[in-house]
Amino acid sequence: MENILEVKNLCVTFRTSGGKLHAVRDISFSLGRGETLAIVGESGSGKSVTSRAILGILSGNASVEDGEILFCGKNLLTLGERELCRIRGDRISMIFQDPLSSLNPIVKVGRQICEAMLLKGICDRRAAKSRAIRLMEEVGIPEPCLSFDKYPFEFSGGQRQRIVIAIALAADPELLICDEPTTALDVTIQAQILELIERLKRERGLSVIFITHDLGVVASVADKIAVMYAGKIVEYGLCDEIFYEPCHPYTWALLCSTPDLDTQDRLESIPGVPPNMLNPPQGDAFAERNRYALKIDFEEEPPFFAVSPTHSAATWLLHPDAPRMEMPEVLRQRIKKMKEATNG
């Protein structure tokens, strides 16, 4: 499959009063056309920074230290602002977490949807309006002709997110980056938005990067999953591989720490807090909080070990000399139950 996006050895740092903050440390991934990649991690793991680096909208104190971001073979990091502008919004667009703060409260939503088309010179004002109404219909806004002249505050949270999606789709992008698009929403609305993104992806052949902290959310939408921790990808694989055969202790811990509907016993929480990225720890960043940490975890950073051609994880546990560790009992039971449910 042809890759629409390729990120190679990306490193991003921020200059802060406390020193250099290593937000993204040497990550690489690729995204095929029409594929969905989910980036999962807790806050501060560098998932949003990665997506902003792709769009070139990092804040002023950030610098990309190293790496390449190839979009259709073109390195976005070497492009000038003018050329980037032509790609941004036009071929890559983004949906942000909070639908209220990403809409302009004093401009009617119709005009906000048209704005991108007019700026890009895709069509004139009248054509833009009819296209906008079609878009609003496509994302499921009731009575699009009437809603065209409404202000953002007149819509509910879920409707606002639909409008944000319509704006993102206005210039017909090839790549859509969704940065926690459902975090501010309820379960029912969340399910609707996920179904919408899934449908748009299918109909328009979009490639999607889906950023979230909730593993449950991505099970329905992702083709590939990258689990990030402390600025690094710790596990990378197909959706089924991550959920049914997780290999990294952090992925185990993430899966264990959320209760499912059958959980009765105490939750297995992850002790401690993520490391301070001003001075990243030596060795594996997760070692401090890892029950399965080996001595070498504190001394040397683990490289990627391939589990299958599509699945790899950065943990010393996969080293041939490492002692065999089983995933936590709770998780094994849960996966067994899921497999039985699928087969039976």
């Binding site: 379960v187 029912t188 969340q190 399910a191 996920l194 179904e195 909730d214 593993l215 449950g216 959310v217 099970a219 329905s220 992702a222 959706c239 089924d240 959920f243 049914y244 899966l255 959320t258 499912d260 509907l261 899921m338 449910a341 699928t342």
Partner: peptide
């Protein structure tokens, strides 16, 4: 409540819970 949800709203709420299980998710009937 989770075993026998009776009110249609409760049923719709329960059917929208995301679970970390790709097969279940792909065949979910909301």
């Amino acid at each position: 409540l989770f075993l026998r949800p009776m009110h249609p709203y409760t049923r719709s709420l329960l059917s929208a819970i995301p679970l970390p299980d790709p097969h279940y998710e792909k065949h979910r009937q909301r």
